[in-house]
Simulated assay, not measured.
Amino acid sequence: MNLYLRFLKLLLLLPFVARRDVFAESRIAFRVWPLDCDLNLHMNNGRYLTFMDLGRLHLIAQNGMGRLLLKNRWAPVLSAAEINYIRPLDPFQRFELVTRLLTWDEKYFYIEQRFERDDTVHAIATVRGLFLKGGRRVPSADIPRALGLDLAPPEMPAVVSHWKELTALKKEQSARLG
């Protein structure tokens, strides 16, 4: 099944997604189809990232942000992703994509995404993103407020703190390399 069909199916289901707490996990079930596979006959590493887009879209709907984004013309934008592939997903296997908000800082939201099968993690990713309006960054604190929530961000998990440090080092290195 082409990812465009999966995307259309998800769009049709989004209006019926039950609203949940902003920190609740989003879970979507998928199956690995042959066109999702690489030459090694398991899910292609790039396909994971595409599925993750669908997971974040589902999380946005579940958090009640869909209409808010449209109304305010806010565009969610991914700025970085880090993924570890632990076990392969083979053709025709079912899996669940689990997406959850971890925390945020003044600029970014940090999200964890896991690919699970039979309660076993096959891949895990951390992504960071932000919201833009007219090409300008929307302050992170404005998002929970717009949802009617008076929330401070949860404590930053160690994995996110270390990742932020690594990302800063990579930026520093790229600036030196020109």
Rank of each mutant, 00 (worst) to 15 (best):
E172N: 11
V138N: 08
V127S: 13
T126G: 03
F92Q: 08
L149P: 12
A168Y: 04
G66K: 14
R114K: 14
N2C: 03
F92W: 14
Y108P: 07
L11H: 03
V121C: 14
M65D: 03
P34E: 01
V17C: 03
A146Y: 05
I124V: 14
G55P: 00
R94W: 12
Q93R: 12
D36E: 12
P34C: 01
R100K: 08
M43A: 10
P91K: 08
L5N: 12
L89H: 09
P76W: 04
G55E: 01
R19F: 02
L8M: 04
V160L: 02
A61Y: 02
R114S: 13
Y110G: 09
F109W: 02
P157M: 02
W163P: 04
D90A: 14
L69T: 07
H42L: 12
N63G: 02
A123W: 09
F131A: 04
Y85V: 08
D38Y: 09
S79R: 12
S26R: 02
L5V: 08
E106R: 15
P15S: 10
L97C: 03
F131N: 05
L57W: 05
V127E: 12
L101P: 01
L102A: 02
A168Q: 14
L177T: 03
L78G: 10
M52E: 01
N2M: 07
L11F: 10
E116R: 10
A75T: 14
D150Q: 15
W163I: 07
T120P: 00
L177F: 01
S79K: 06
L169H: 05
F16L: 13
L14N: 11
L54T: 04
S26M: 12
N45Y: 13
L147S: 11
G135T: 06
L14I: 10
R145S: 14
F92T: 13
T120M: 13
S79G: 15
E106T: 10
V17E: 01
N72G: 09
P88W: 13
L49N: 13
L39Q: 13
L11K: 01
P34H: 07
F51M: 08
L97H: 01
P76N: 03
